[in-house]
Nucleic acid binder design. Structure first.
Lengths: 197, 197
DNA sequence: CCTACCGATCGGTAGG
DNA sequence: CCTACCGATCGGTAGG
């Protein structure tokens, strides 16, 4: 991958390191070393270690949100008011974003706890709003009898856990391309919810 | 909770801290402070920080394994050769262990990466063997037509991700008792797999 | 279990 | 982007 800016290269390397050592387990010098720089030289490009984490988490959040909004618009255009269609599209969008940059997505999923109090609170709100999209479509589907469930909240959290789990085993060079994995996850999660016809 | 030994108290406090700050983000002095001790005093009870992590991870692994083995024996006694029964019991056993000590289970699920190379390899093998139990029952169920699936490996990983996700939101003081949450997860995961009858 | 201390490493700054 | 450096904190040891 060719980086357009030095700043972006730093964030990409940091995503990789944060993913498998965690934020606290990764030092500024680790990041610098991966870029063949001296530790102190990083500060010519970033103002703090936490700013690097924030940039990664914020971009990931924005990507998930944008993909979710687009998927909802498209589902509504295809089949207006169809909760099954909307949720399927949302699931696929989530897996697509996740597999497009697994390092970044993993950091978003696991390392937001290392942010300072205000940023952590901001991300928590955005995560809640994101999860709310899933729960809303589940409740709509329940309302029209498409989904047979007793607890839409648990269903939403369980689906998101299942989807985020993909980040732990997805391998871009593995036997299954990302879109086939998305197919499987759409199938599995929809079967989990749908009432037998 | 009354601790039988000082060592165990250290591990319980460490589980709590490791869970929400991570292993690297928790210092020996953090653990000591939570026990009203001086940092150096911890070394009267443990030989290294990693030993504390290992003790937690190892005990959690042993608990998941013992509960899984017991659930398989009991399922076999109730309904010999019934894959649906066996997998349901396995799912319930997993959620039971997880909710019985969420801190310990969370550390097991997320912090094994911080172990040294040999211990990490050992735990990875045990995790693989554990996941294999799930996949085996899924394949058995596919063989007799009880489960309608195309990829048992993805199904096993997706189920385990969904179950482990409970650790992120389960609250012992929350609206749902652990056994009701286990009911929901058994229901959701089985519906994900079962062929329509 | 404490005090006193060790060398190493941490995030970050100054000045070029 | 580098060298030189800062104070703070890290995991851990010595000796009691």
């Amino acid at each position: 991958m060719v980086e357009l800016t030095r700043r972006r290269a730093i964030e990409d390397v940091a995503s990789d390191l944060f993913r498998d050592r965690g934020y606290a387990g990764t030092s500024i010098r680790d990041i610098a070393r991966a870029l063949s720089l001296q530790g102190a030289s990083l500060y010519a490009h970033v103002t703090s270690k936490e700013d690097v984490l924030w940039a990664i988490v914020e971009r990931a959040a924005a990507r998930f949100e944008a993909a979710a909004a687009a998927s909802e618009r498209e589902a509504e255009a295809r089949r207006p008011g169809d909760a099954v269609e909307a949720l399927s599209a949302l699931v696929r969008a989530h897996v697509d974003v996740l597999t497009a940059d697994v390092d970044e997505a993993s950091v978003f999923v696991h390392e937001w706890r290392s942010l300072g109090p205000e940023r952590r609170a901001t991300i928590l709100e955005r995560r809640d709003a994101y999860q709310h999209r899933f729960r809303t479509h589940i409740e709509e589907g329940m309302g029209v009898g498409a989904f047979a469930l007793t607890d839409p909240s648990i269903a939403a959290m369980t689906i998101l856990s299942a989807l985020n789990g993909v980040a732990a085993w997805y391998d871009p060079a593995g036997r299954l391309p990302a879109h086939r994995i998305a197919d499987h996850l759409v199938d599995l999660t929809m079967r989990m919810l749908e009432a037998p016809r």
